[in-house]
């Protein structure tokens, strides 16, 4: 392992596959029939770093996540884990490496309670009998350390709010003590307060030294928590930025693929309108003088 002392090199060049990445992917390709969901895409994340993966609808973000998670393995490409090449062909492979995933479609079992959902697939058991007591205690502890508020860990997930469900899904991903967590649009369906809750949670993950890959369409959220931003467009890398040194326009430009686009045109229009209003207001303010 070639991890540098100090870990994060946020002021680095922001180029692809920085040294010391826990997880890095290169040349990832994935086709669905005629659709090239990913072509020659790359991504890297270091310990204690939040990397935002952004791009328009259908850019291939979820496909990338699913390839890393082993849910839908890539057709082609190389995955390095702590510098070693690895193959991930099923969810179990990713889990044993230390990669945890929270999917866009939450993937919780509504009919099971919070404890069962947290431990699903990794139940604690004495012989064949489930150790409900240990699981319940660990679940309570985990949710407490993450400051997740839930009426009771024995309530079925079906009766939780969107933010609570998202928190359960994230907490679930942490049980295996992962090194990298992949979050696919964790705030998409949430209100302001619940979004803030989840963003806090993401920061806590980073502070614990985890690598976080965050997919989001909300650039304000991305700006709030991400250290780096990787942009995908039509399945290809379209730029990588260090958050602190990058303006929102640069990211939007990379996402849409042109300095001249719907988004920039709209922005220009809005700005022009604002300018016109300002001028108008000024003129109005000066009008009385002219009349007099």
């Amino acid at each position: 392992m070639s991890e540098q002392a100090g870990g994060t090199t946020r002021q680095g060049d922001g180029g692809p596959s920085p040294d010391g990445a826990v997880l890095s992917l290169a040349g990832i390709s994935k086709r669905f029939g005629a659709v090239h969901a990913l072509s020659d895409a790359s991504l890297a994340v270091k310990a204690g770093e939040v990397v935002a993966l952004v791009g328009d609808n259908g850019a291939g973000k979820s496909t990338m996540i699913k390839a890393i998670a082993g849910v839908n393995p890539a057709d082609d490409g190389e995955i390095l884990w702590e510098g070693r090449p690895v193959t991930i062909t099923k969810p179990h492979d990713a889990a044993t490496l230390g990669i945890a995933t929270v999917y866009q479609d939450l993937a919780l079992c509504d009919n099971l309670d919070v404890v069962a959902n947290l431990f699903l697939g990794n139940e604690v058991a004495n012989g064949i009998v489930l150790d409900e007591i240990s699981m319940e205690r660990r679940a309570t502890e985990l949710l407490d350390t993450l400051s997740v508020k839930i009426p009771s860990v024995r309530t079925p997930v079906a009766s939780l709010s969107g933010g609570q469900r998202q928190s359960v899904a994230i907490a679930r991903s942490l049980l295996g003590e992962p090194k990298v967590v992949l979050l696919d649009e964790p705030t998409a369906a949430l209100g302001v307060a619940q979004t803030a809750q989840v963003l806090d949670l993401i920061e806590r993950l980073r502070d614990r030294g985890l690598g976080v890959v965050l997919i989001s369409h909300n650039l304000a959220d991305v700006r709030a928590v991400a250290d780096r931003v990787a942009v995908l467009r039509l399945g290809r890398n379209a730029g990588e930025f260090v958050m602190a040194e990058t303006s929102q326009e640069q990211i939007v430009e990379a996402i849409t693929g042109a300095s001249e686009s719907v988004v920039t045109r709209r922005q220009a229009r809005v700005e022009a309108a604002e300018a016109a209003r300002d001028v108008g207001q000024k003129r109005q303010a000066s009008d009385p003088q002219e009349q007099s």
Partner: peptide, 9 residues
């Protein structure tokens, strides 16, 4: 949720 179960391994 069959898909969730599958993803849980």
């Amino acid at each position: 949720n069959r898909e969730a179960a599958r993803r849980a391994g």
